[in-house]
Write a protein that binds this DNA or RNA. Sequence first.
DNA 1: GCAAAAGTGTTAACTTTACACCCATGT
DNA 2: ACATGGGTGTAAAGTTAACACTTTTGC
Lengths: 229, 229
Amino acid sequence: MNRSIDYHSTFSIDCVIFGFDEGDLKILLIQRAEEVHIGSLALPGNIARDDEDIDQGAARILNELTGLEEHHLEQLYTFGDVNRHPFGRVITVAYFALLKIRKNKLKPKSTFASNALWIAVNQIPKLPFDHNKIIIKAMERLKNKIRYQPIGFELLPEKFTLSQLQNLYESILQVPLDKRNFRKKILGFGLLVELSEKQKGVSHRAANLFKFDKKRYEHLCSLGFNFEL
Amino acid sequence: MNRSIDYHSTFSIDCVIFGFDEGDLKILLIQRAEEVHIGSLALPGNIARDDEDIDQGAARILNELTGLEEHHLEQLYTFGDVNRHPFGRVITVAYFALLKIRKNKLKPKSTFASNALWIAVNQIPKLPFDHNKIIIKAMERLKNKIRYQPIGFELLPEKFTLSQLQNLYESILQVPLDKRNFRKKILGFGLLVELSEKQKGVSHRAANLFKFDKKRYEHLCSLGFNFEL
DNA sequence: GCAAAAGTGTTAACTTTACACCCATGT
DNA sequence: ACATGGGTGTAAAGTTAACACTTTTGC
């Protein structure tokens, strides 16, 4: 090991974790508990450990913050400008996660964070390092990806109404959608199961609840199906 | 600098360089001139320099091999399994490039390569590290991207026939396309300029040559145009 | 009974697909 | 004169887009 490499540089892992709450797309930011910008709001992240694959590292960070094993997590992009870190050559591999907010009580502390909070994407403050740039990239990815992969469901509760789903798409794509056409199209995929249950606690006609049939989606994919909104 | 980072790991940059020649999609491989697997065929790449942004590093590698400044180059994905490099913790940021083969005489040597050659994608041998995995990822990217960005032109000569273009799409997408429908669609974008020049040296009716109007593409994009085949 | 959101179909415009023959050139 | 690929149009099927009213429920 290490026979011929003289290490002058390293890499970290940062996560852009999206949630959707009360009609707002949000990102989970932490208050840094580690050196460089201690106390600042920033993306959750860490210098990578030597003994874990980078995908595992990202999953660990997400898990330390949320206690959750289950979530959509994928690599986003690697940011490697020479001067992005004040202490030396540190590039960062950014990951992109989608979370159901409601269900998830955040852990108050993790090794790298003294606090964590959900901030609406249009209220993100100026962040240290190149974290604002990373967030912009993540939002582009989400906006593109949601049109051809059924990942929107990862941001909604298990049971949701079609209006919530439409609202999610409208928030992310930043365009209004026609209600009837939206329903026709999304139901047309045959990927939503209508539950007998109805919405509760609303002061108007209660909407039907649906859930996403992931098994069926995977099955259709294996037959060559392509989701596209 | 380096006040608080203890470097145990580093990162390299590898490039998957695509070319298209005689109906075949090809990748540029080198014979390694550096430690670990010296002499093996592999993707062109290097441990990253401390003093260059990773995008610059990728451009340098490409330039050392080909002598070219002009090409499509974008980040592909970062591969970071713990044991991917035999000498320690080295993750690699892979880049993805598209080149016009004809125009480009390869430089015989660069710092990291003793030789370079174009290999058809269906004839890629088993390569060291995780380079085969990187190539698979690059091919997926190319296949997806070519459908919604006009990047195919980067692989063809400046002047090309519609059949060459169709052939390129068919090779990459791995589906046959209808000649009339293909022409209707691609000409319908108004992005191809018909030249007065014709194909030469063929033993049948000479096809018209076209070129891609990049300026116009950029202009249309700024007006909200989306290319989609 | 009224405010608020749920739910529901039809038509016209457009896009996609399928398909076959004549043309120009070199040998 | 023949082999090779170049070049061309139309009709049917499918998809998308535009649009408004009735229903249910809680207050």
